[in-house]
Each structure stands twice: as structure tokens, then as C-alpha cells.
Computed example of a mutant assay.
Amino acid sequence: MPMTAAALEAELRAAFPDAEIAIDDLAGDGDHYKARISSTAFSGLPRVRQHQLVYAALKGKVGGELHALALETSAPPPKG
């Protein structure tokens, strides 16, 4: 059963409560998404580690309920 965009965003928001999150359904089928996530949790981390945190937050759903997920992750710019 595919994962809805709302369910995907809820999972990500639970893991990264301060994040700005944008989800795009790339194929209109609920199986192929692009997520843009900006969170302080990513500060100082290399891109690979940022993506690992996202996959860990999704608890094995990528490759199952969620067939494909393209990621754009970043930390927000420092304030001041």
C-alpha cells in the first residue's frame, strides 16, 4: 500500500519538529516522492549523514511502503 504525502510529512515532522518540509509527489502514484527538509538537526553534518537521519526517521518504510524518495536536506542559515 502506498504512503500518502501527508503520512510522509507526519513521519518527518515527528523526527524533525523544527523543520521546514516540502513534499512533491513525483509520479502521482504515492510511491515516488521528493522531500525538501531544512532542520537544525542537520547543522554541521555532511549530506550523507543528513540523509541517513531521514532514512532512520522513516523506520524502514523506504523500499517498502515508499518505493522511492529523492532528498534535498539542509540546515537553516545561522541567525544574526
Rank of each mutant, 00 (worst) to 15 (best):
L58P: 03
H67K: 14
G64S: 14
Y55T: 10
V62G: 00
P2A: 12
F42M: 02
E11A: 15
G63W: 09
A22V: 13
F16P: 10
R36L: 12
P76S: 04
S43N: 10
D31V: 02
A6L: 11
L12Y: 07
H32R: 10
G28A: 08
I23K: 04
P2C: 10
S39T: 02
V62M: 01
E9L: 10
D25N: 09
D24I: 15
A22K: 14
G60H: 03
I21K: 05
H51C: 11
D29S: 08
G44P: 01
R49S: 12
A14T: 14
E20N: 09
P46E: 11
A14S: 13
G80I: 10
K79Y: 09
A10Q: 12
K61C: 12
K34D: 00
L69W: 03
E9K: 14
A19T: 12
L58H: 05
P17V: 04
L66W: 03
G30T: 06
A19W: 05
L8T: 08
R47K: 14
Q52T: 09
E72V: 14
A19R: 09
A56L: 12
V54E: 00
V54C: 09
T73P: 01
E72M: 15
M1P: 12
A10L: 11
R36A: 14
A19D: 04
L45D: 02
H51I: 12
Q50C: 14
D24R: 12
P46K: 01
V48L: 15
